[in-house]
C-alpha cells in the first residue's frame, strides 16, 4: 500500500485571497484532478474563480500525476493596468 503525499500549493492573486493564504497544502491526492476536488471542498469560494495550474513551473491542461515534492501553483489571470 502506498501512502499518498501532502502537496504544497502556491496560490496567487485572487486565489490566495479567497483561500485565505498564499501557501496551502492538500493531503491524500495523487493527481491534479483529485487535488482540485479536495481544494474545492476545503475552499468552496474557489469554485467561482478561474485559474491556471502549474506543476513544477509548467502550465498543465490535462490531469497530471503529483508526487510529494511536486510544486503546484494556482495562477489566476490579472486584468489591472
Amino acid at each position: 500500500m502506498t501512502t499518498q503525499p501532502t502537496i504544497q500549493l502556491l496560490a496567487f492573486g485572487i486565489v490566495a485571497e479567497k483561500a485565505g493564504s498564499s501557501r496551502l497544502s492538500i493531503s491524500g491526492v495523487s493527481d491534479t484532478e483529485q487535488l482540485l476536488e479536495a481544494l474545492y471542498q476545503q475552499h468552496p469560494a474557489l469554485r467561482e474563480v478561474r485559474f491556471a495550474i502549474a506543476v513544477n513551473r509548467k502550465i498543465v491542461h490535462e490531469n497530471t500525476p503529483l508526487q510529494a515534492d511536486s510544486e503546484v501553483a494556482l495562477l489566476p489571470p490579472f486584468s489591472g493596468g
Binding site: 485572487i14 478561474r50 502550465i59 489571470p77 489591472g80
Partner: peptide
C-alpha cells in the same frame, strides 16, 4: 493558452475597484 476564455465579470476586478 494560459487562459482560454475570459473570467466571468467580478472574478478579477480591475484597478479602479481594487
Amino acid at each position: 493558452d494560459l487562459y482560454p476564455v475570459p473570467p466571468a465579470a467580478g472574478d478579477a476586478p480591475n484597478c479602479s475597484e481594487t
